[in-house]
């Protein structure tokens, strides 16, 4: 079970949060066109490794959090607010 350290509420079980998917892409500009929006809505890097992702703390402060989490080990390396910048740790190898 994931334990997520919410910057506002402290460490909580995953069941308090709602996952909102990949946070690595931002919404294209209004005039970016179909291809850009289609990629934004449908295409996912889906890494087997470090993943930047959104979690909404619906059972707590209702803040949107940004996490750096490993999709295989589930290690959470970083938790921040929606507007915080984060970079993914480098993968060894590939």
């Amino acid at each position: 079970m994931l334990r997520i350290r919410c910057p506002w509420c402290g460490e909580r079980d995953e069941t308090e949060f709602r996952y909102r998917g990949d946070a690595s892409q931002s919404r294209p500009a209004a005039d970016a066109g179909l291809e850009a929006f289609s990629a934004y809505v449908y295409e996912r890097k889906n890494p087997r490794g470090w993943h930047l992702e959104w979690w909404l703390h619906v059972g707590g402060c209702r803040r949107l959090l940004k996490l750096v989490r490993h999709t295989l080990t589930h290690e959470i390396r970083w938790v921040g607010n929606a507007e915080d910048q984060a970079s993914l740790p480098r993968e060894p190898g590939r």
Binding site: M1, T15, R48, E53, T71, L72
Partner: peptide
């Protein structure tokens, strides 16, 4: 479970 994962294992919730 509702979040991306490649871990082939069961979870508690």
């Amino acid at each position: 479970d509702g979040y991306n994962t490649y871990a082939q294992r069961g979870t508690l919730p």
